[in-house]
Amino acid sequence: MNRILSIISTSLAWALGILWLFPLLYAIWASIHPSEFVTRFELFAPLTLDNFREAWNQAPFLRYMINTVAITMLILGGQLILCTLAAYALARMEFKGRSLVFALVLMQLMVVPEILIVENYQTLAGLKLIDTYWGVALPYFASAFGIFLLRQTFKTVPEDLENAARVEGCSLLGTIWHIYVPLAKPTYLAFSLVSISYHWNNFLWPLVVTNTEKSRPLTVGMSIFGAPESGVDWAVISAGTLISVGPLLIVFILFQRQFVQSFMQAGIK
C-alpha cells in the first residue's frame, strides 16, 4: 500500500516537473528544427540554426542585450551603494524618527515601483530622463527589499567589532567597508542574484519609459518582436525567445545551487 503510494507520488512529482519545463523544452525543439516541425514531433527531424540566424537579423538583439546588461548593472550598483548606507543608518545609528523611516521602508515593500508607473513617468519626464538607462534604473535604486535585508544582517554584526575598528582609527565609511560589508557577503550575493534576475526580466516599467532601441531592454524588444497575430514563424519566435532568456538561463543553470539558496535566504529574512 505504502509502496504504491510512493510510486504514484514520485510519478506525479516528475510529471509536474516535465510540465513545468515543457515550455522551455518546447522552445528548444521548435527553434532547432525547420518550421514544418513546429507541431510535428519526429525524433530524427533535421536540425538547423537558421531560426536563430533569422531571429537575430529581425531584431537588434545585441543592442537589446547591451541595454539589459547596462540597466541591470546600473540598478544593482545604485542599489548596493544606497541600500548599504541606508541599512547601516537604520541598523546602527540613532536618530529621531528612525522607526518612522523604517516603517516607510517596510511600506515600500508593498508599494513597488511598478504600481506607480503613471506618477514615476511624470517625474522622470520632468527630469528629462525618458528613454535613458537612468530613467529605467532610478525608481529601483532605493530598494526596500535590499535595505530591509541588509539591515537585518548588519544587526547581527557584534557591536564590539565596530567599536574595535573605531578605536583602531577607522572612519565611519571605513568601518562599513572593512567590517560590515565583508561580514554581509552572503546577503550581498543573495540580494544581487535576486535583483539581477528581477531586472533582467522586468518589463512593464521599461516598456513605459523607453521609446527607442537606444535604451530598450530585451524584454521590451521581445514584446515587439515580430507580430505574432499575423501568422509569424513560430520557430523564429522560439529562437528569439531563447536568445533573450539565454544568458540568464545559462548563468542560472551554472549557479543553480547559489540561486536557490539565495532566494531561500532572502525569503527567510
Partner: peptide, 11 residues
C-alpha cells in the same frame, strides 16, 4: 582596547 568578546574580525 581589549574587549570581552575580543572583537576579532572573523573574516
Amino acid at each position: 582596547m581589549v574587549f570581552q568578546s575580543y572583537a576579532l574580525f572573523p573574516h
